[in-house]
Computed example of a mutant assay.
Amino acid sequence: MKQAIILFNLGGPDSLNAVRPFLFNLFCDKRIISLPNPLRFLLAKFISAKRESTAQKIYEQIGGKSPILENTKMQAEVLERELNRTFLSRSQTRITPERAKVFICMRYWHPLADEVVKNVKQFDPDEVILLPLYPQYSTTTTLSSIENWQKNAKKHGLKCNAKTIHHYHDNKDFIEAHVNLTTKYYKLASKIGKPRILFSAHSLPLSVIKKGDPYALQVEETVKLIVKKINIKDLDWSICYQSKIGPIKWLEPSTENELLRAKADGVPVVLSPISFVSEHSETLVELDMEYKAMIKDEYYFRVPTLSTDPVFIKCLVNLCINHS
């Protein structure tokens, strides 16, 4: 049986010229802006034009493009290798055909669902597994990617058994991977003083949460499980939210405010990006440059994203094998 794993991620511009169309695709998503068309289309045109220059300056700081595709490719390669190694070890014969192939599908820039569906159809799998690189479920990320995939699968006549992994915010291997990395940086920070761990997640408008989106609850559950497993008495920690845009109310407290509070308290900060599993502009610029500048260098310890961490890859492998 051949298995196609569709690895969903946000995507990012691959050049400065791609910034405006990337932003347009983002803001034209009905799961991001719920206005009906043509209003949503016109608003997306306006916002993408207005934000283009600001966003280009962000990407200029990291080489003129987003690194998210390269990072996701590394994750896909390791996941595919480990999946096929697992299938081979379980096989009764010494030689088996390729069992699993991992396809990357970005939501707002290439490779987009329309082109990925065609490649999957050519691969002709017996089963498709939809695996978002969003550990916590949100209508703005997980659901948006799945709906877009299903629309394109129908358009191109991709008909095979499809299973969806909606979230893994409480998966034991996912939690363990975070515990291992966070503990490592906590020990480094402890040489200066008693650290405060800031678990930073991408923010969401409160209006989305009020409609029943479970994202914030799942972020909280993830963090509580990590804190419990770290098992340090009187651990100083906080959940905070980053990457807010626009004047509407978003999830709080903001990462920026929590950093200012830590600075005022004179404690070293261990900052863990809890909702991102790949490095991109919101970790490499926001966390590593903008937020780091707010704290003295020796007081700021940024935990890397899980990326190709072996325990995290083990989590993804088991999700693909044990899906239901």
Rank of each mutant, 00 (worst) to 15 (best):
I5F: 04
L7P: 12
F8P: 09
N9H: 14
N9L: 11
L10H: 14
G11Y: 09
G12I: 05
G12D: 05
S15A: 10
L16I: 14
P21T: 09
P21Y: 11
F22W: 09
F24I: 07
L26K: 08
I32G: 09
P36R: 07
R40I: 06
F41S: 14
L42C: 12
I47L: 15
S48E: 08
E60W: 02
Q61G: 02
Q61K: 15
G63Q: 03
K65D: 01
P67G: 05
P67M: 07
L69D: 09
T72Y: 09
A76L: 11
E82F: 03
L88N: 08
T96D: 07
P97E: 14
K101A: 01
I104D: 08
C105F: 05
M106T: 11
M106F: 05
A113P: 07
E115D: 14
N119Y: 02
P125Y: 03
V128R: 02
P135D: 08
Q136D: 04
S145E: 04
N148P: 00
W149H: 05
Q150I: 02
K151I: 10
K151F: 06
Y168W: 12
Y168L: 08
D173S: 09
I192T: 14
G193Q: 06
K194L: 07
R196F: 01
R196I: 15
S203M: 06
L204V: 08
L206W: 06
G212Q: 08
Q218F: 03
T222Y: 10
V223R: 12
K224S: 15
K224W: 00
I226C: 11
I226N: 12
K228L: 08
K229L: 04
I230M: 15
I230Q: 07
N231H: 12
D234E: 15
D236P: 01
S238P: 00
I239F: 05
Y241N: 07
Y241M: 05
Q242G: 04
S243Y: 10
S243N: 10
K249E: 15
K249L: 11
S254H: 09
E258A: 11
R261H: 07
P268T: 11
F276K: 06
S278K: 01
E279Y: 00
V285C: 03
E290D: 15
Y291S: 00
K292S: 12
A293E: 14
M294Q: 13
Y299V: 02
F301G: 11
V303Q: 06
V303R: 05
T305I: 00
D309A: 08
D309C: 07
P310C: 08
V311H: 10
L316C: 10
C320N: 06
